[in-house]
């Protein structure tokens, strides 16, 4: 009986895994095919990978785009996690009526579609450009500044803090740690799975962000990966082999971040015992 259930579970997970992984594999296969074969949905690998890669390197500045996207994503991830967790912790641990009200107001900011605030935001950066050109329009800083402080992560960290054993805070106070010390030395290490999840999401969001970088970054030397891919698909006769090559390259960093972070999701890992 128990064995049958096990088999059923494996069957279920395997189906889900195959369904999930299939498009990814197809992408990798398509990377080695000619454009015409990609559009026909050819499922077997071809011999055109080197050709596609050469075309990609010749026609685009993918190196610069990767570096820009990487820089923006790393800075965004680190700052987002820091600012978001500080606030999420602050709202939950130092809970008060006033703060709860502010929290609810902040949550509202998640709810309006970005397209609606984009033009006022662009105007704001236009004005910032006049006084501080280094964070104004067409700078990498402008691309990440509005994305590092988000209600999403504040909300996320607050909800997770609800499950954090608050006795630890009192214990820290008794040990004579400062409030900030408690946060950095107790909360942060205890919540590392939460941070790992947040890091994956923040990196991914930033890496794939399209609309805002599109309008705010105009010069080619500031191009990011999603903009580059969008350009590749824009001609009258797009080369899908090259596009797939670019997409696979673009997907690897996020997949890598996931691989690195996911070890924190292993239940009862030695880390928490040894630590």
């Amino acid at each position: 009986m128990k064995k049958i259930k096990r088999i059923f579970i494996y069957l279920f997970l395997s189906t889900a895994a195959i369904v999930s992984i299939f498009p990814f594999l197809w992408m990798i296969v398509s990377m080695t095919n000619k454009s015409v074969d990609v559009t026909r949905g050819k499922l077997t690998p071809g011999m055109h990978f080197i050709e596609n890669l050469n075309n990609l390197l010749e026609t685009t500045q993918i190196g610069i785009a990767l570096w820009n996207s990487f820089l923006i994503a790393v800075i965004t991830t680190v700052l987002t996690l820091l600012i978001g967790s500080l606030a999420g912790y602050g709202f939950e641990i130092y809970r008060s009526k006033g703060k709860d009200m502010i929290f609810n107001i902040l949550i509202l900011s998640m709810m309006i579609p970005f397209a609606a605030i984009m033009i006022p935001l662009y105007r704001l950066f236009g004005r910032i450009s006049a006084d501080a050109p280094f964070i104004g329009l067409d700078t990498l800083a402008a691309a990440f500044l509005p994305t590092i402080i988000t209600a999403f992560f504040i909300f996320f960290f607050r909800q997770n803090t609800k499950m954090f054993a608050k006795e630890l805070v009192e214990a820290g106070r008794i040990d004579g740690l400062s409030e900030l010390g408690i946060f950095f030395r107790i909360y942060l290490p205890t919540m590392k799975t939460t941070y790992a999840a947040a890091a994956i999401i923040a990196f991914m969001n930033s890496w794939n962000n399209y609309l805002w970088p599109l309008v705010v970054l105009q010069s080619p030397e500031n191009q990011t990966i999603p903009l580059l891919i969008s350009n590749l698909g824009a001609g009258y006769t797009p080369d899908y082999g090259v596009i797939m090559t670019a997409i696979v390259i673009a997907t690897l960093p996020t997949a890598l971040v996931f691989f690195l972070m996911q070890r924190h999701f292993v239940a009862g890992m030695m880390g928490s015992v040894k630590g």
Partner: peptide, 23 residues
């Protein structure tokens, strides 16, 4: 507690609420 949240409040105010009012 306010110190923990102040940066977020200011940031969201500037980058979200100000444009939201404009919108």
């Amino acid at each position: 507690g306010w110190l923990f949240i102040i940066l977020s409040v200011l940031g969201i105010g500037l980058f979200y609420f100000y444009p939201m009012v404009q919108a």
